[in-house]
């Protein structure tokens, strides 16, 4: 077999009759940082959400570490795996959302510890220690007993990243994590992501921050109308785009 961390083969996704992913292929090695760019509706967020089965997909396969995600073939028929197995597979990845989605009735530390207790079956003390370690890592140890409503957007997003990363995922998925933030709060979140990249964390980032994608990525994927329009290293992609679509997209984006 291969030693790719992530393998996406001929991924197809439909909402009713509308096909939003029309055959996406993508492989990713351990430690890579890939940014996915493209205009809205190009399928980049949908592709990310297929990887952790927040979206069903109708065709193709996704494997993480050689494990096929979400579906299995039983007597030649493609079938959704049991929910328990899908839940276990979801823990292979961590995800940070555009809207943070912190649990509002739990403290910052409680948010990070929940998955450790419920999924990893750790004791409360163990979970608390790990939660505090990761909150410290994102610079928010002093806010561990604060509730999400008492934190700024940037702080909430950093807690959300700590919550995902504390589960020790093989791959982190970032879904436009700075899009809902006030401009002055964007940087603190990007710095956290940059730190994780430097530590060798494998990451897929859907982002509109072109400058950041340029700086942090080992590879960039440009999605266009449900397909990969162009991909390559950030230098070629941003400075010498090959396709007209990407050239046009970059003109209208914030990269300059």
């Amino acid at each position: 077999m291969t030693n790719n961390l992530l393998e996406i083969r001929d991924l197809h996704k439909r909402y009713g009759t509308v096909e939003v992913l029309k055959g996406v292929d993508c492989t990713m090695r351990q430690g890579e940082v890939i940014s996915i760019i493209g205009s809205s509706g190009s399928g980049k967020t949908t592709m990310l959400r297929c990887i952790n089965m927040l979206e069903e997909f109708q065709g193709g396969t996704i494997s993480i570490d050689g494990q096929e995600i979400g579906y299995e073939m039983v007597n030649g028929v493609r079938r959704r795996k049991r929910e328990k197995d899908i839940a276990r597979q979801r823990a292979l990845t961590g995800m940070a959302f555009q809207q943070f989605n912190l649990f509002p009735h739990m403290t910052a530390a409680g948010n990070v510890a929940l998955g450790l207790v419920k999924v990893k079956k750790m004791s409360r003390d163990e979970a608390k220690a790990i939660a505090e370690k990761w909150l410290d890592r994102v610079g928010l140890l002093s806010r561990k007993d604060h509730y999400p409503g008492q934190l700024s957007g940037g702080q909430q997003q950093r807690v959300a990243i700590a919550r995902a990363i504390a589960m020790n995922p093989k791959l982190m998925l970032f879904d436009e994590v700075t899009s809902a933030l006030d401009p002055e709060l964007v940087n603190e979140v990007l710095q956290v992501i940059k730190g994780l990249a430097e530590d060798g964390m494998s990451m897929l980032l859907v982002t509109h921050e072109m400058r950041f994608a340029y700086e942090v990525s080992s590879r960039v994927i440009f999605m266009n109308q449900g397909r990969i329009g162009e991909e390559g290293n950030p230098r070629e992609m941003f400075l010498k785009p090959k396709t007209e679509r990407l050239t046009d997209f970059l003109k209208t984006s914030s990269f300059n």
Partner: peptide
């Protein structure tokens, strides 16, 4: 988004309901 955040960390639907 609350349910999705729960799913993303590997909780089951029942755990998401109760917690």
């Amino acid at each position: 988004g609350q349910r999705e955040a729960g799913l993303a960390i590997g909780l089951t639907e029942m755990q998401i309901r109760t917690s």
